[in-house]
C-alpha cells in the first residue's frame, strides 16, 4: 500500500531535493566558471601571442586574414565587435586593438572609408545598391600597385564596421549575389526576384518575367518600373522589346577604363 508518499511529507521531501539540486548546481557552476575563466585567460594570451606574431600576415595576406577571421568567429570572438565595444575592456583601447596594435581594425576602417566612397560615387547610377564584387573591383582599380589584396569577405567585414555609426549601410543577399545597400530602402519580394533574374543575362524584359516567373504583365511591369525609378535598372530602348539592365554589368563587361 505504501507505493508512494502521497502525504504531506512528500512536499518536504521535494523541497529538500530541489534545494540540494540547487546547491549542487551552484557549486558546479562556480567551479565551471572558474575553469572557464582560466581557460579564457589562457586562450586570450595565446590568441594575443598568435596575433602579435602574425600581425603582418593578417594584414597583408587576404587568405590568412580570412582564416583568422573565420577562426575567431568559430570560437565566438568577433574581432570587430570586440573592438568597438563600449568602454573598451582594459581601460583605454579595446582588447583587440591592444592585441594587434590596431592594425586589423585600421585595415577594416580604412577599407570601410573606401567602400563608403565607392557607394557614394556610384549611387547615382545604381540607386545605392551595388554588388560586393563591383565595390571590390572599383577599390582595387584605384589602389596603388603592390598594395595588399582584398577579398569580398574583407569588404563585408568593413561594411559591418559601419554599423555602430547607425549608418544606412547594410548588406543584402539577392539570389547568389551579395549587395551593399547604401540607401535605407527595402526591396519587396518582386523587386528582389527581378534583380535576381537580371543577374543571369544582365538584363530582364517584361515578357521574360512573365514566362519564367509566371507573372501577369502588370505585376512584371510594376516591379520593373519601381526599380527603374530607383535607378536600380537602366533601360535599353533600342531593341524589339525594352531591356532593363542591371548597372552592375557596366563594370562586369568590356575592357578596363
Amino acid at each position: 500500500m505504501s507505493r508512494k508518499g502521497v502525504g504531506l511529507a512528500a512536499f518536504d521531501r521535494s523541497r529538500i531535493t530541489s534545494a540540494q539540486y540547487a546547491s549542487h548546481g551552484n557549486s558546479l557552476r562556480s567551479s565551471h566558471s572558474t575553469s572557464v575563466a582560466t581557460q579564457l585567460s589562457v586562450f586570450r594570451s595565446l590568441l594575443q601571442q598568435f596575433a602579435q606574431t602574425h600581425a603582418k600576415d593578417i594584414r597583408s595576406n587576404p587568405s590568412f586574414r580570412a582564416e583568422f577571421a573565420r577562426m575567431c568567429a568559430a570560437i565566438g570572438v568577433d574581432p570587430l565587435a570586440s573592438s568597438s565595444g563600449a568602454g573598451g575592456k582594459d581601460g583605454g583601447g579595446s582588447f583587440w586593438a591592444q592585441m594587434l596594435g590596431g592594425s586589423v581594425n585600421d585595415f577594416y576602417f580604412e577599407l570601410a572609408v573606401r567602400v563608403v566612397e565607392v557607394c557614394g560615387a556610384s549611387r547615382e547610377e545604381n540607386g545605392g545598391l551595388i554588388g560586393v564584387k563591383e565595390v571590390k573591383d572599383r577599390i582595387m582599380s584605384t589602389r596603388m600597385e603592390g598594395s595588399s589584396e582584398i577579398t569580398d569577405d574583407d569588404i563585408l567585414r568593413a561594411v559591418n564596421t559601419l554599423k555602430p555609426l547607425g549608418s544606412s549601410y547594410s548588406t543584402l543577399t539577392v539570389g547568389p549575389k551579395i549587395y551593399i545597400r547604401s540607401v535605407p530602402k527595402e526591396l519587396n519580394i518582386d523587386q528582389s526576384a527581378v534583380l535576381e533574374a537580371a543577374q543571369v543575362l544582365g538584363y530582364v524584359t517584361v515578357s521574360m518575367l512573365m514566362i519564367n516567373l509566371k507573372w501577369p504583365r502588370a505585376r512584371a511591369k510594376t516591379a520593373i518600373d519601381d526599380l527603374v525609378s530607383e535607378s536600380m535598372l537602366w533601360v535599353d530602348m533600342q531593341c524589339a522589346e525594352w531591356e532593363y539592365w542591371s548597372p552592375g554589368f557596366m563594370l562586369g563587361t568590356g575592357d578596363d577604363g
Binding site: W234, M237, G254, G257
Partner: peptide, 16 residues
C-alpha cells in the same frame, strides 16, 4: 573606350 560604352542602355535616354 570605357566600360560603360559597352553597356547597351547607355545609348538610350534614361527616364529616371
Amino acid at each position: 573606350f570605357p566600360r560603360f560604352y559597352n553597356f547597351p542602355p547607355f545609348f538610350s535616354r534614361q527616364p529616371t
